[in-house]
Design a protein around this nucleic acid. Structure first.
Lengths: 204, 204
DNA sequence: TAGATTGTTAATCGATTAACAATC
DNA sequence: TAGATTGTTAATCGATTAACAATC
């Protein structure tokens, strides 16, 4: 929502939000940047700088009002303007994401998955339909989806990506370890699960 | 394996490796840093600087020998010293990772999962056993696992983390969106799937 | 040789941390 | 008031990019 927030800061916002929500605070309970910093393993000046981007101001000697901070983070993360997402590829990962309930706390509703295997389309997963890939374009429009998650094999990823863009998808999260060529108006994020484990491995 | 490689560089190594492997090159085919840069959407000086950390040297006017580069990246990513990993939490995500074949290309063998639900322990997933959480310590030792992936609910993550460390696990990849308190000798990496989608959402 | 491509050194950019004044 | 905590300004650190000499 806020293009001028540095990406590094934006990427920490969910951590702040998760932590503050966990506190289950009363109406105007306060918290100091130092307490947040310690809980998340960050420097406290960094925390204050980050939080300044939410335009929630703290009071010297008092700290921040937790509820206000939560609301400000939710605003900047766009939790309020609800968006719909679809998943492409209903293998193990795709189905896991389809039944995972954790997206809604960021205002994202995962509404359906698509797969080229008709057998996979027979049963709902977590109450969400799995549709055939031929219905992708139609489905995206019907569900009003703006986000998509690519969970197909690497070899199919670019092709699926092109189809998603043609269908009007504006943001793509992909688990396929391949650089996607897309128009710069499309936002793409990469998560490579195997690479994450490999990096962990080489840090030890 | 190489503590002095900057983390930013290390995190790009899997991307280089994936791209180069895809090329399916003949014995001494060459590639220029510019070609790699374009394929991955990076600057070409950055690519050369990154590759320098693998201590694979290129020839001016010629480029790098693809096979050598692959071997060098595999070495620095530790693909050669095989390590075993276990998964804790056999829900949708845990089972998806258990049956996912993509870890072995980094030399990591996911050998088993653990869950507190006995029903989930009845059937193998992808040929790998799902054991009861009470067998965690015993299982880690038996399988000689050094890495673990936490796929349990957030509320259980710290407790599981402590158990893993007590059982001798040295590296942890966690999907639970909570900062884990661990001894600094333990390496932890965080992947928050919902947060990734949320960040994507707020970048649009 | 001429020209393409590497590796290195210097410059820039951005992010984090340190110092400190403002203030409740 | 005194002291804790914020927000800001300056300093540091690290990563990326630019410039260029080396070389095959």
């Amino acid at each position: 929502m806020n293009k001028n927030v540095p990406l590094t800061t934006l990427e920490r916002f969910p951590d702040y939000l998760n932590y503050l929500r966990e506190l289950n605070c009363a109406e105007n309970e306060k918290i100091a940047s130092g307490a947040i910093a310690q809980a998340l393993g960050l420097g406290e000046v960094l925390v204050r700088k980050d939080l300044a981007y939410t335009s929630c101001v703290g009071k010297p000697r008092v700290g921040y009002v937790v509820c206000d901070l939560i609301a400000a983070l939710e605003r900047v993360l766009g939790c309020e303007n609800k968006r719909n997402a679809v998943i492409v590829g209903a293998g193990g990962l795709g189905r896991a994401l389809l039944s995972y309930g954790g997206f809604i706390k960021y205002g994202i509703d995962v509404v359906a998955a698509f797969d080229n295997d008709l057998d996979k389309c027979k049963t709902d997963v977590g109450g969400k339909p799995v549709l055939h890939i031929d219905e992708l374009n139609e489905g995206i429009k019907k569900f009003n989806a703006e986000l998509a998650v690519i969970c197909v094999p690497t070899s199919a990823a670019q092709n699926i990506c092109d189809k998603l863009v043609k269908s009007g998808i504006k943001g793509i999260l992909t688990f396929a370890p391949v650089n996607l060529k897309v128009d710069e108006s499309i936002t793409v994020r990469y998560v490579d699960l195997a690479a994450n484990l490999a990096i962990l491995n080489s840090l030890m």
